[in-house]
Design a protein around this nucleic acid. Structure first.
Lengths: 206, 206
DNA sequence: TTTTGTATCATACGGGTATATGGTTTAGCC
DNA sequence: GGCTAAACCATATACCCGTATGATACAAAA
């Protein structure tokens, strides 16, 4: 074999370009030509690394969700490290999902676009499903932790509480996109209040 | 003027075709040619009544939402006529929004598609906004009614309770589309339970 | 019956899409 | 150092889209 390039690095570069276009201009402005232009390469190169456009889209979607997931996880981890109460930490973490400010608005919009596309595309749907299950599972674990220190009623079903939170936040996001007057933060705060009725500041591990 | 046709009837016929395609095959299969074919007319005729495709889409979206609204309103009205408790009536009415069964699944999916399109299209956005405000206002009024007969705490903020319900149901719907295992009915039931904690069967007006 | 303008149709057009194709450059191995 | 296959590019291709255009059919007014 001769002249080997770093395939994965190239792919990441193209995925980056696709994400940039999708977030900034909308998912259907992500054309092969636009990705090539943004990445500063030829159309042929894009084809070389992504023979079918769909695979590029799937990777871009997965990357987008992975980053969101990482941000949420980081906020939760930082809160636990700091010994914050879960009831204070969760609204901040889930707030990442709400279209507050330009950046999160663009992101929420493009997530909605991908999710909609996923509605008729099995590959994208699997990606969306994976993300949703990961998030709900994370929430469930968090609720379980809250139980242990008394922030949540011990008799409550953790999955049920987690799904309530999930529905609240994923419902508030598009509502805010459609009507800026919709107070998604209030809805989220209310949902967290219900999920974690009792205060419980834990000792910092540091 | 010579040879006058019923413009509005023709438009309704074309809107019908557009809705049929959108619900059955997805919003981006709604092309002018497909609408013409489905309606059994020529492409030129579609253009004659809808010089721009966007207006056809706006009308189709508005019609879709109007029908949903009518179904919800009818359920609520029937419940009130029958003297049903609001806490029993609301889950049924809002259940129309959930993708339960093939029909409601197709409808929820296409609503998501339109809403997503609206995210970057001012005309469609206005239509979506109008619908959302109508639904939330209807919910607020219902919560207010529930207060009067004691199903809801008198001290609660009706808008806040209504928005909680709205977020729960509009969050549960896409979650169910993505993951069929997501129990949206349970989430909706829980939200209604919180909104209307006390039973109160009223006398039928008939 | 002739005129007239609307209703309707068939088709052309221009632009944008994903993908196919064939050529050119270049890095590593014999 | 030249050979070879991968990396990369420019362009062609085939298709589908919304819209424009011009012709035809036809109902009502004159």
């Amino acid at each position: 074999m001769v002249r080997t390039a770093d395939h994965e690095a190239r792919r990441r570069q193209l995925i980056e370009a696709a994400i940039e276009i999708a977030v900034g201009q909308g998912i259907d402005r992500v054309t092969v030509a636009a990705v090539a232009r943004t990445a500063g390469v030829s159309v042929g190169l894009v084809q070389h690394y992504f023979p079918a456009k769909e695979e590029l889209m799937r990777r871009a979607y997965a990357e987008l969700l992975a980053r969101l997931d990482a941000r949420v996880a980081r906020i939760v981890a930082a809160g636990e490290e700091h010994g914050d109460a879960i009831r204070e930490m969760v609204p901040v973490a889930l707030g990442e999902l709400l279209p507050i400010g330009p950046r999160r608005t663009d992101e929420a919009r493009v997530r909605l676009e991908f999710q909609t596309l996923a509605g008729r595309n099995p590959d994208l749907l699997a990606t969306a499903q994976e993300h949703e299950r990961r998030m709900r599972e994370r929430l469930r674990v968090t609720v379980d932790n809250a139980k242990k220190c008394g922030e949540t009623s011990r008799s409550a079903d953790s999955s049920e509480v987690a799904d309530d939170l999930w529905a609240a936040v994923t419902g508030a996001a598009p509502a805010m996109l459609v009507d800026p007057a919709f107070d998604g933060r209030r809805v989220l705060a209310g949902a967290c209040q219900r999920a974690f009725p009792r205060e419980c500041r834990r000792a910092a591990r540091t």
